[in-house]
Amino acid sequence: MREQALSGLKVLDLSRNIAGPYCTKMLADLGAEVIKIEQPGKGDPSRKEGPFPNDEPNHDASGLFGYLNNNKIGITLDLKSERGVEIIKTLVRDADVLVENFSPRVMPSLGLSYDVLKEINPNLVMTSISNFGQQGDYRDFKGTELITQAMSGFAYQIGDESREPLRAGGALRMMEYISGAFASMSTLAAIAGRRNGNKGKHVDVSITECAVLQTPYRTVQNSFPSSPSIFTKRYVTLPSIEKCKDGYIGISILTGKQWQDFCCMTEMYDWVEDPRFMELFNRIKHRDEFRGRVDKWLMEHTKEEIFKLGVEWRVPITAIPTFGEMLDFPQYKEREFFVSVNHPIMGEVVQPGAPYRLSETPWEIRKPAPLLGEDNAYLFGEILGFTEEEIQLLDREGVI
């Protein structure tokens, strides 16, 4: 097996759902050895989420779990059992990283706090991902995607100003993926710090604070000491998603030059230097007149026609593809972005690849996501040296 960027890095993955598993996925896809630890009999809750082949629920055939857990070694272990905690401590001795995304009280209650684990392995990097971080009045509160988007101010900036704020991303749990990426980056930063003679670190990642980082523009605007109220309007009129003759088109006009080119493209020459529409805030102020004319033009043209005009006039425009259309999008196909993974239950499935390229140590899918407890015999037998009888006893006692 060829070397990858993170070959040799050993990671214990106690996390579940999306944020933690996405963090460890990013490490595993670059070559780290990730041991995915799940609850016996139940597994990661994401195993209960689809899509499933033929819409038949199967904890070994979840499309979400499959995407998040490629390249991982999968075992089951009861962390609430004394024996399970002992096994975790044994695994920690040789680990570089431990990732968890429980509520902040859980790991200490199990006897697996960072203070305990660093005594076993002073070089361990422990990454904890939680809704609100390890400190503060909110640290033990439950959270969901809607709550983190709302508390971060992310939702407030989205939607028509005459209506309620909107959650972004539909069913997609955007903030969990974003926080997983931040967790991966900060974990690698802690690993890099060890090379300078530093010991391990406890990395504390707040999903809500990761969400706040997606709104720096509004944060800065509203921190100005004078007239912050002028920045409260939501941006809904170019840049925006617009309906056209046969679907939807995205139009992003951010500069005066782009506005002038847009006016020439649409043959609205009398608006080229009209102060009511040249600036974003003024387009919102004169929205009714703007919408009446632009909507009429859009409904007279198809997605393809508008896209070609955008290319010709150098106006930032894109058609809004369906998921089916996206899989055949020429740019993605040329870069081989989507990859096929051969799963023992689901068969061949298509998943997003990596948005980056490493020339010498490439990203790759080495193995599909594990079935529940698939690697118990390998890890407990070959790695930890348990006999077959000991493994069977652990199974009967519900430890694995």
Rank of each mutant, 00 (worst) to 15 (best):
W313N: 07
I37V: 15
A377C: 04
M265R: 01
E374Y: 01
A150I: 06
E161G: 10
I249V: 15
G353R: 09
V399G: 05
E209W: 06
H202L: 14
E119P: 02
D78C: 05
C23W: 00
F338D: 10
P21E: 05
P228M: 06
F262N: 06
G31K: 08
Q260E: 14
S15G: 14
V34W: 01
A155H: 02
T219R: 09
T187W: 03
R173I: 11
I251A: 08
Y138Q: 13
I400D: 03
R195H: 05
E388K: 07
H286M: 03
S46T: 08
N71E: 10
T302A: 10
E336T: 03
D204M: 06
E305V: 07
G43N: 05
P239L: 03
L14W: 08
F281M: 06
R357L: 04
I317F: 01
T266I: 06
C210H: 02
R16G: 01
E325D: 09
L213C: 12
D160R: 15
N101Y: 00
S186D: 15
A369M: 02
G200L: 08
G41W: 09
I251L: 14
P57M: 10
P53R: 11
N71V: 04
E33F: 00
M1C: 05
M278V: 15
Q135R: 13
C264E: 05
E209V: 03
P275E: 15
E334Q: 11
I75P: 00
Q214A: 13
E82A: 14
I73P: 00
I253Y: 01
S152C: 04
S162P: 00
I87P: 00
E267L: 02
E82N: 14
G292H: 01
L254T: 14
G373I: 04
M185T: 13
D375T: 01
M268I: 04
T215V: 12
H301L: 04
H301S: 11
P165C: 06
E86Q: 15
M107R: 11
S7Q: 07
K257R: 10
